[in-house]
Design a protein around this nucleic acid. Structure first.
Length: 269
DNA sequence: ATGTCGTGCAAAGCACGA
């Protein structure tokens, strides 16, 4: 079984790439972020024709999250119950579902812009709502149920998860409050911590490069190797026990018209 | 430091977000 997460940066602009990637990599479940789609423009029929059920949450030009599955899609939850609003709007940044008995969330954490900005405070509130959801789901699902939070967290957990930590001094994505909020999610239930699955940099088992998942479009970020590991899979022990390998499909960042993110792929037993 | 994208509005050029 294969589960992946991918910030598409517009499903409309990326539909040919999405469909060819599904054909090439054959994921059983794909969690998507930044669909930038509405209920009307979400390509449910094209996905259904290829064997994928889908659940989408999106209402406009920004954000948008979805879950695609060919192994069942049950108990869909649109939005986090405790999700904070920004400017009186609850944005389309979280969708949960149960696929083949695995409880999964597709998350698009706010960017934060700059440390101290009102979007930064919003980002921390959003991360705290994710933490609260971990507590609630653990109570509902019990200890043995496989559970994972996947998506674009817009946080690099460690200094070596960015291409040059010195260049990030004082900037968002690496700040102590963001990393503390991420750690609080992982430790929401100390008896059932979530592990940050560190992937390989590519499908090549011998690839020892840093496993970045995002490279800026601006300034030729990919070509210059200026990447960040900000797309994460935080999973509980019952799910971690089943993961045989995790890898970044960096080939999907190549060629004409890529997203700025590469898929993160989990291969289960 | 900000060179690229994608989107939608209102109109092919801009503002915004990343």
């Amino acid at each position: 079984m294969r589960i992946a997460t991918w910030n598409l940066n517009s499903v409309k602009a990326r539909l040919p790439r999405l469909l060819s990637w599904l054909e090439l990599r054959q994921p059983d479940v794909l969690l998507v972020q930044e669909t930038k789609a509405t209920a009307e423009s979400w390509p449910a029929a094209e996905l259904q024709a290829r064997g994928y059920e889908s659940a989408h949450l999106g209402n406009g030009r920004w954000n948008g999250v979805a879950i695609l599955s060919r192994v069942g899609l049950a108990d869909v939850t649109r939005g986090l119950p405790a999700q904070p609003a920004f400017d009186d709007a609850v944005e389309d940044r979280a969708i949960g579902a149960t696929c083949a008995g695995i409880r999964l969330w597709s998350l698009y954490v706010p960017n934060g812009r700059t440390v101290g900005h009102q979007h930064f405070e919003y980002k921390l509130r959003f991360l705290d709502a994710v933490r609260a959801q971990c507590v609630a789901e653990r109570a509902a699902l019990g200890t043995g149920a496989p559970f994972g939070l996947l998506g674009d967290f817009n946080v690099a957990p460690n200094d070596d998860d960015v291409w040059d930590i010195v260049a990030f001094d004082g900037s968002t994505h690496v700040s102590p409050p963001e990393r503390a909020a991420l750690a609080a999610i992982q430790q929401a239930d100390p008896k059932a911590p979530l592990v940050d699955l560190r992937p390989r940099a590519s499908i090549d088992p011998d690839d020892t490069r840093p496993p970045y998942t995002f490279w800026e479009m601006r300034m030729l970020g990919f070509q210059k190797g200026r990447g960040m590991r900000i797309d994460l899979a935080l999973v509980n022990d019952p799910l971690a026990q089943r993961v045989q390998s995790a890898w970044v499909d960096r080939d999907a960042r190549r060629g004409e018209g890529p997203s700025d993110h590469a898929p993160l792929v989990l291969d289960l037993d």
